[in-house]
Design a protein around this nucleic acid. Sequence first.
DNA 1: ACCTACGGGACGTCCCGTTTAT
DNA 2: ATAAACGGGACGTCCCGTAGGT
Lengths: 220, 220, 220, 220
Amino acid sequence: MRLFCGMLFVEDFTMQKGELTRQRIVELAAPIFNQHGYAGSSMQDIMDATGLEKGGLYRHFASKEELAAEAFRFALRNSVKTRTEGVDSADAPLDRLRYIIKRFIEEPSPMPGGCPLMNTAIDCDDGNVLLRTLVLDGIADWKARLVAIVEEGVRRREVRRKVDPERIADTIIATLEGALMISRLEGKKTALRNARESLEDLLELIACSRTKRGGQRKNH
Amino acid sequence: MRLFCGMLFVEDFTMQKGELTRQRIVELAAPIFNQHGYAGSSMQDIMDATGLEKGGLYRHFASKEELAAEAFRFALRNSVKTRTEGVDSADAPLDRLRYIIKRFIEEPSPMPGGCPLMNTAIDCDDGNVLLRTLVLDGIADWKARLVAIVEEGVRRREVRRKVDPERIADTIIATLEGALMISRLEGKKTALRNARESLEDLLELIACSRTKRGGQRKNH
Amino acid sequence: MRLFCGMLFVEDFTMQKGELTRQRIVELAAPIFNQHGYAGSSMQDIMDATGLEKGGLYRHFASKEELAAEAFRFALRNSVKTRTEGVDSADAPLDRLRYIIKRFIEEPSPMPGGCPLMNTAIDCDDGNVLLRTLVLDGIADWKARLVAIVEEGVRRREVRRKVDPERIADTIIATLEGALMISRLEGKKTALRNARESLEDLLELIACSRTKRGGQRKNH
Amino acid sequence: MRLFCGMLFVEDFTMQKGELTRQRIVELAAPIFNQHGYAGSSMQDIMDATGLEKGGLYRHFASKEELAAEAFRFALRNSVKTRTEGVDSADAPLDRLRYIIKRFIEEPSPMPGGCPLMNTAIDCDDGNVLLRTLVLDGIADWKARLVAIVEEGVRRREVRRKVDPERIADTIIATLEGALMISRLEGKKTALRNARESLEDLLELIACSRTKRGGQRKNH
DNA sequence: ACCTACGGGACGTCCCGTTTAT
DNA sequence: ATAAACGGGACGTCCCGTAGGT
């Protein structure tokens, strides 16, 4: 039996009906929590979406919080997958960063409600410890991935030695997430496109040889 | 009677007791809504914070939504005020931008819970139309302010002619807000400081004479 | 303010909205419990019937059991009222008994589901102490009423002195209730009509002068 | 293999273990359903009584409803058997009726919870079609038996020609069942005894020669 | 401005009837 | 025949936002 489990195909000959139901619940709950937040989503909403009753839900999850955590994990996995799909098509580290930025702008989130990381980061600003940890991990992962690429760039002499990889990672993440927020609010992609342009300026700035593409740029 | 003076409501000499109470409610409700979101904040929470009973609250606000709107207005006003305080100390447009960025980093938000704009933008992603409009206005104001400064820079020959002021505005806002989010999540200011550095790179990039400060920069 | 409260008009200037709602719940719950029994009726059924939510119901009744008890009281009051309406039109005790029997046959129960006394008697055969007491009281009341009429008949020399009033009361109640059960089951009134005829035979038997109507009877 | 002998299923020599278990389940389930009704009895109750697990139960019965039906059949068979035992000791039709009435009063029901017919009649007043049919059949059987006796009485000139046998049957059943209900409720046999006396009056009334026992009666 | 009443509805527990794997 | 798994749904508690009365 071949099962789609988040971003991975998992071979599991023993997966039970209950496990499938659990998966289904998670998949349907994820967009709800992502759109309305933890407090703004009710178990009734999940019941409506899944067609299950209370009993069916609570058999698979001990509490709303646990379900929300699972749903977040799923949403994050999905987002990461979409955002990183095809990165390997580029070889040069800077091109990989450019690809990632482009991908983010073009396919902001496969999950209704925007970026699960940002949504949940803000939603769980109060007590919810579990969610908070998960978001923190998510951000750390993302940052690590970007840092690795920048470091690889330095190693390959494509990126200047003095550049702080973490600064670049932070900046990319911050700018993209912030722009996504504005973009969603305004209902148009301008902010995202503007962010992309500025980030590409930034990449050029940290590149070893600036002259390569600099002359062709249009806006400055 | 309330008088709007600059960014703040100032009590008139004839302000009634009721009006004062209303003001007090708003001030105490703002951090609550900003921290826990609309759905996550209850009238009971407001009661606890103000020491008033429900009836007392509903005497001043027709509904929770109205109170939340008022609270958001207050929170936004407060944030804007804090962030723009002292901008006039700098004269050159680019310096003003630098000042604004520095201010944001150092005094991220006087309102517990972070930036009301971002929080509310994400919180009201679902139905809440009133709040959504207010946030949109808030972002537009902020953007307009930044655009005006960049335009002034162009006029003064301090900023290159080809630069799109809106792109700069979008980038600054996006990067600052995104970095604030990360910063709050991580519980340390690194992300904000990194964002600042990158934004200053950006400003230098759009400045007419690059040579001025470029040589002194440490990281590239 | 004039309120219909079960079988009585009650003058109550202070009756609140909540009390009205409570009344409404009872009135709508009574037929449900009477039809499906205690275990067979759910609070959800009551919610559906009243249009209220859980909270609205449990504000007025501490538990399902309490609501069921109140509903039974209402159902019983209603039944008694219907069955005794117009008894006073007859003066002679035996005629009053005949009238009561006739009334029972013709208007077996105003409450969907049949006689609340019988239904509840059988339904609460297990633990439910509260309901059991109420049913017992209901039966006792009914019996007392019939006993009083028979005794009055004895006093007026209309009924033979040796007749045991309680036996007559028990017989009338038993026969009517039993016949009603059969009647409802069969979906036709034959059993009730047969019971009536037999009961009238019985009344004639205990009357002082048998000759009066005996010759005119058709079936024996 | 089961053999129907008189009123009971009797085990054949070749009866399998499974069939025995099924029989045992029915016997233990019958009093439970008879006492608490269909909705008030749970499969868990049956499990507790039989010591079987759910799977064991469902091996023998496709559903709760089927088990309840079987249990009712058993309970009814048992009741009928007890009530008719020894009727043949009397020869004269009226005496047989008197015997049946006496038996009913003295041995109201061998099945805990009272008469299965009455209990189920009232319990299945709502949807349950299968049970309803069984009860209807049960009543019809009983009535037929009584009608046959009365008709035999007419044939033997023991009962007046004009008497409607069905009326007598209906009256006897109704009165006995009604009295049983009262009796069980009150926790004493008075109602049953009173019913018996009245029914004996009735029998005397339909008998051809009244004089026989009339003079010895005490109460009128 | 307080206080209470009101009805809505979320959450979670428990157990029910049924199915499945063993 | 057992035992666990499954999804349904009942019950009841708590608190929410709101409305009125005082």
